[in-house]
Design a protein around this nucleic acid. Structure first.
Lengths: 336, 336
DNA sequence: CTGAAAGCGCTTACAG
DNA sequence: CTGAAAGCGCTTACAG
């Protein structure tokens, strides 16, 4: 691939024997051009290996081919696959990503970023959070291009949001426990004010209700950590409730619970089945390198991918769009 | 921040009472402008909240403000922090990232990407690999903009490369073992043809030689996995060599070694000290959530950051630029 | 030190 | 269906 002087549209027009305007329309799919002319222009473009200059095209059309990406914390473990999935998808659509990493809540830094992005004439904006714990302020009205929120919820319900289906995850986890023969199912929940935690619990109730079951034991809240998971499991055991399975709101809690069970002489999954959420490599895998936990995967890369796609498709509609979780089987639940 | 019609440079010029050309030069730091005029233009620009239209500026200047990013496998666990570090750094420099993810070795897909990137008029290119195992073909001559290779080595030594300092990592790991009182140090190496593995071993020899020591035991190669680490450790124990510490070429090998030691009744670090490389969250942390391994961190996000910076600074010079590793202390080595 | 003018390479009403 | 012309909003030789 030698580096020759690139052909311009005027060269193509000359070779095809048409005007600049006609050449432009022929290549851009304008229908008011005869098939014969279109073909002649196409052939000329191909012969000259014509590629439109993106800079000129942007300037003339007003579209930059660039999407702004506001990440709350790009370093965050869970935000990273979402952001990476989104950015790679943008590239596949030939769109560049202008990424500003910072605290979306901090209005000072944010207003600087907003002004920058507007000057850059971005074609759309992706706001990427680090989970559905709370809601984020809506930035949509600062822009006259489409804005999509991924992995965070905007406070304005009219905004376009892409979120993991936490309720579906809770339903799927619980259903799996039911499918593997459990009927007395307890819950080890996340923080009290976390939207994700609430939804996972609601999903659990969905599945139990559909099966004619009721939750067993007290609802115990936690901070998502392994240490709290171990303590919460101890509380659960001491509560006197009788249960044969526990739906843990995330993998860390499940692993903590597992420790307490081991100390109490309970065998997993024979005496007690456990299931978590996240399916995070390095969490669900034990010291020997083998999977130790059944978990629901929220498909975070796919979440980023879908959110990025929304900007250029008809999927850019108000409200929540949910990614479908998948089940990752491990030894902590009975096989079906 | 209301959304008003943006001020143009001509508005600024009118308010300042100068010509368009003068306004442009005043704002862009051209020195052939009187201080008084410059100040007047600045004030006018500020009053109107003028931000140059990036599209027009790009078109006129020929610079797109976009950097092409070719990732070998963006999904790869180790490549992800590198890519993320690079992309966030580009954003901090107000440069967009046009990311194409694919197999850099596959020339067909690559030549399509190259043509796309050239049409996009990128200001520079980042080629991001997934480690320094082998070398990658040089793409530099396809472009007339700066190209930097990150986390992979180009076959052309004249190219600009950013790599983790694997030799330094080997040196640092071994020196730490020496500093904590070990003198008979064995090695559990990576694959035979891996550049990274070779360098880590060379670094080990550097440190040993400087301390007047010699390596102990056979050099055992492996495939970086925990399973092979366990087997290799068993070989080492059976070899009859006497050693009080093992430098493992990565964390997975060290964890495998740890298992074998546990089975053999060896206490870590009392009977044997172990150190690894990567300091990978989820690898160095055990089931109870606490660190179980001393490891050398290759600082991969920083690697991406530095590589991205190279495109716009004087650091864009031929050859290898190395990121300095850091030591992450854990319970597998004696405290100093 | 300042300004008039050309030009970057396309797209897009508009007229024919 | 086709083309002449204006225009996108800057930057940059060039002349003064």
């Amino acid at each position: 691939m030698p580096r020759e002087k690139a052909a311009r549209l005027s060269d193509v027009a000359a070779v095809a024997g048409v005007s600049l305007a006609t050449a432009s329309k022929a290549l851009n799919g304008n229908t008011r051009i005869s098939a014969a002319t279109r073909e002649r222009v196409r052939a000329a473009a191909e012969r000259l290996d014509f590629r439109p200059d993106a800079l000129a095209r942007s300037f003339a059309s007003g579209r930059s081919g660039t999407i702004g990406v506001l990440t709350h914390r790009a370093k965050n473990t869970f935000a990273r696959p979402v952001a990476m999935g989104a950015i790679v998808q943008l590239g596949a659509q030939n769109q560049a990503a202008l990424v500003y990493d910072g605290d979306v809540q901090e209005s000072k830094a944010m207003s600087a970023s907003i002004r920058e992005l507007r000057a850059r004439r971005i074609d759309g904006l992706l706001v990427i959070g680090d989970g559905h714990e709370h809601t984020s302020p809506s930035l949509t009205h600062y822009f006259d291009v489409p804005v999509t929120y991924i992995f965070t919820a905007s406070r304005d319900p009219g905004d376009v949001m892409y979120l993991p289906d936490n309720r579906g995850a809770g339903r799927m986890a619980t259903q799996h426990l039911i499918d593997t023969g459990n009927t007395r199912i307890a819950h080890l929940g996340g923080p009290e004010r976390s939207i994700a935690a609430e939804r996972r619990q609601a999903g659990m109730l969905d599945a139990l209700t559909a099966a004619g079951l009721e939750p067993v034991g007290p609802v115990i809240h936690s901070d998502w950590t392994r240490v709290r998971g171990a303590a919460a499991m101890a509380e659960l055991l001491q509560s006197g409730a009788e249960f044969d399975a526990v739906f843990c709101a995330n993998d860390h809690l499940a692993l903590g619970a597992m420790e307490t069970c081991a100390a109490a002489g309970l065998r997993i999954p024979d005496d007690l089945a456990l299931i978590g959420v996240d399916n995070w490599e390095g969490t669900v895998v034990d010291q020997a390198g083998s999977r130790q936990l059944t978990s629901v995967d929220l498909e975070l890369m796919e979440l980023g991918r879908l959110g990025a796609t929304s900007l250029t498709t008809t999927d850019h509609t108000s409200g929540e769009h949910l990614t479908t979780p998948t089940l990752a089987l491990g030894p902590s639940t009975h096989p079906a």
